[in-house]
Nucleic acid binder design. Structure first.
Lengths: 350, 350
DNA sequence: ACTGTCGTTTAACGCGTGTTAATAACCTCT
DNA sequence: AGAGGTTATTAACACGCGTTAAACGACAGT
């Protein structure tokens, strides 16, 4: 019906007050300045007219957009098979809604990082951002350090001073591999979750190495493979591994997504888990408990990570000095069915 | 360094032209109005100063935000385990980036729909929106029909005239069940993907009924269960089904996510797929090809759906009249390993 | 009745850009 | 060289709201 746009002026007119008063009513913080009855009048008028404060005008005048950005560092092709993402988005949406903020999602191309980050923040599209799985080789990060833009990394980059929220990837991976060693395995392969340009991938790989070293097991580089986030890459890498070098009784796969593919490759090779090969995953995505066999894996509390990131970012936005600029979320090994004690039978099997 | 905000005025000054000229240069469509050399000068000045046009000011002046919204109808709890979502987001991000648009993600609570939709569009946070898996019982949709807001549904709602992009859920589900019937199955159970308030769920259930009717098989309501998007609900429903009513040789599970849980329940019951029970899924999420057994399922081209939705919305935004306001994307039955011809052995097994 | 005080309300300016209508520059042709 | 026509540029207003400083009104005390 009412095709005209409703502005605060209209509301003011109907309520019999000035436009400023309307503005005061709608900026909650200084409520004390307005008399309750006046505020009530304004609210009613706004309601009657169907008034919604214009976000752009507000952003322009106040110089804040009340929107934060979630920056993804992979291409849509890989985003599409990232089962960790929904958990992150779910967690963020929850908080962002409570806080009346908007959530903008963006994908940044390699090589475009600096420009994209600057564009997003300088243009005030967003007040601050959360960078999901940052990369070592991201030149934009140092740019962000210099300019003072509110920003939180989901994942840690060594020698980078930006605030971050992360798990201890290295220790968690070590915990997983330690478990395999405890079970008697000595020949343990590894498939990473991604290329080592991603900090989580290289850190998890380090954890794998740590565990072997601590147990005095020589590291066999040919037992290490790099996957690419998704099940398909896990399948490929596992298949290769089985063909080229079948001398291992256990494997640490640094992502449940990838592990699913690995499982399929093992099945296709006529072997089974954990009878022939023990497998420990990483992430504990919701589906991991339903894989066949149910995955023993490192639980990464995605929701908590999302929430902490969001809170940290909001503190930075408000100018509060956070208790700590770096937050580590504890992980936990979830023991299910995909790993077991090594058996003699294995040796004959392979 | 340059802590002052750079405005088009600064650029104009450096380039020795007026602010309007700068504005013309940055609004690509009317490029012809500016002499190439002038444009070049402006571009260089902008580059040197690190100028990024302010999004809010631009949105305010032009009355368009160059941002579209992706509206989710479920709670974060269910969003977190939606493996279809990454594909949608990946697809949208791809196009949105090409078109220089922003993508805002929002979750709408039941009961808040009208308010949320109005708020988002009237406040010009977004120019238009895509509503993911709309619900029958969403009163906001009729509101959207009346007011003229660019909007595309990902999923069809009967008696709703809003533009939509969808697959033919009913026919696709029938195709899946037809296949089971072809394989000789007569006692076929069904677990839906969600509550029937979601259009896709009720439509897929109808397709299941259609197939049985067409084959003159009586419909046994006790063989029908409703799941809730995720594997956990699939597990629960399947377990119930196996305990209460084990007289079926095949099952149609209207979502791969849910199917994963169902598979786990079947395994836990000591049965196997497809030896004891044949299963056909729906969606063909990327992981489906790696489940155990590899899922026979209906391929839903998520990326294409995302792209078409986005394109349709953009046409609406530009005021072009689209070739068609409703787009149906064809699906396809992907035959893998989870369904097979019925065997006599089955009868003894159950 | 007048002054002073405190708590409300308002006028007016600024945020940075898009865009129209008018001006200026330039070129061609007689 | 001047008129007419085309193109390049600019001045000025609009967009809707936040916010500061000033105006206003009520009220108490002398």
């Amino acid at each position: 019906m009412n095709n005209k746009r409703v502005t605060s002026f209209d509301v003011a007119e109907l309520a019999g007050v000035s436009r400023s008063t309307v503005s005061f009513v709608f900026s909650e913080d200084k409520q004390s300045r307005i008399r309750p009855e006046t505020r009530q009048k304004v609210r009613e008028a706004a309601e009657k007219l169907g008034y919604y404060p214009n976000a752009s005008a507000r952003a322009l005048a106040s110089n804040q957009s009340n929107t934060i950005g979630l920056i993804m560092t992979r291409s849509p092709r890989y985003i599409a098979s990232d089962n960790f993402l929904p958990q992150i988005i779910g967690g963020l949406l929850d908080i962002v809604k409570q806080e009346q903020l908007g959530l903008l999602i963006e994908w940044v191309e390699p090589g475009q990082q600096i420009q994209t980050y600057l564009q997003l923040t300088r243009a005030k599209h967003i007040d601050g951002m959360i960078i999901l799985t940052p990369r070592f080789d991201d030149p934009g990060l140092t740019a962000l350090e210099q300019i003072d833009i509110p920003c939180v990394l989901m994942g840690q980059i060594p020698e980078c001073n930006l605030p971050y929220v992360d798990i201890d990837n290295r220790a968690s991976a070590k915990m997983a591999v330690d478990y395999l060693i405890e079970l008697g395995h000595r020949q343990i392969a590894c498939i990473t979750n991604a290329a080592t340009a991603y900090s989580s991938a290289s850190q998890r790989l380090e954890g794998y190495r740590d565990a072997l070293k601590a147990a005095d097991i020589a590291i066999d580089e040919s037992l290490i493979r790099m996957a690419d986030f998704d099940a398909a890459s896990g399948y490929t890498q596992m298949k290769d591994l089985l063909i080229e070098y079948p001398r291992f009784s256990a494997i640490f796969v640094a992502s449940d997504n990838v592990a699913l593919g690995a499982l399929a490759a093992i099945h296709d090779a006529g072997l089974s888990v954990p009878e022939d090969i023990s497998l420990v995953g990483f992430d504990d995505i919701p589906e991991a408990a339903f894989y066949y066999p149910k995955l023993t894996t490192v639980h990464t509390p995605a929701k908590e990570i999302a929430e902490e990131s969001c809170h940290l970012l909001m503190q930075l936005l408000k100018g509060e000095i956070p208790y700590s600029r770096t937050i580590n979320i504890p992980t936990q090994l979830i023991i299910r069915d995909s790993a077991r004690m090594i058996e003699r039978s294995h040796i004959t099997t392979n």
